[in-house]
């Protein structure tokens, strides 16, 4: 599934790296604990989170993730957005809750990242 389709499905605003919206992804991982993302996320996937700090972007970078979806309409700071932009990571903001965002993506066939192992 393309990142562009994820944005449409979640009616999300795109805040960074719009040129990367045609990137294909197969997996997603939902979490607010970055330690757990590092421990359990395995693929180059989409990170769905409600945590807002630069470490979210750096954690995504460590795992070669392409996209971060911030839920509940949470707006990241300009520092977070520019860090993502500089590293070709798409940032989206959706008004959906984590549960609904994950449910909608799961419905389309996007896989649970951690279940891959």
């Amino acid at each position: 599934m393309k990142l562009r389709e994820i944005a449409e499905l979640l009616r999300a605003d795109i805040l960074s790296s719009e040129e990367m919206l045609d990137t294909e992804v197969q997996n997603a991982f939902c979490c607010d604990m970055m330690s757990d993302v590092l421990a359990f996320a395995t693929n180059q996937s989409v990170l769905i989170t409600g945590l807002l700090n630069p470490q979210v972007v750096r954690t995504a970078m460590m795992l070669d993730m392409h996209c971060i979806v911030f839920i509940n309409g949470k707006e990241p700071t300009p520092e977070i957005v520019s860090l993502a932009e500089a590293n070709d990571i798409v940032i989206m903001v959706t008004r959906e809750s984590m549960f609904r965002a994950a449910g909608k993506l799961y419905d389309t066939g996007l896989l649970d990242d951690a279940a891959e192992e």
């Binding site: 607010d32 604990m33 330690s35 757990d36 590092l38 945590l51 700090n53 470490q55």
Partner: peptide, 14 residues
Amino acid sequence: IHNMGFGAGMGLPN
């Protein structure tokens, strides 16, 4: 630290 998304006790095990 927990509020910053760390301190889950996964650091050294990871």
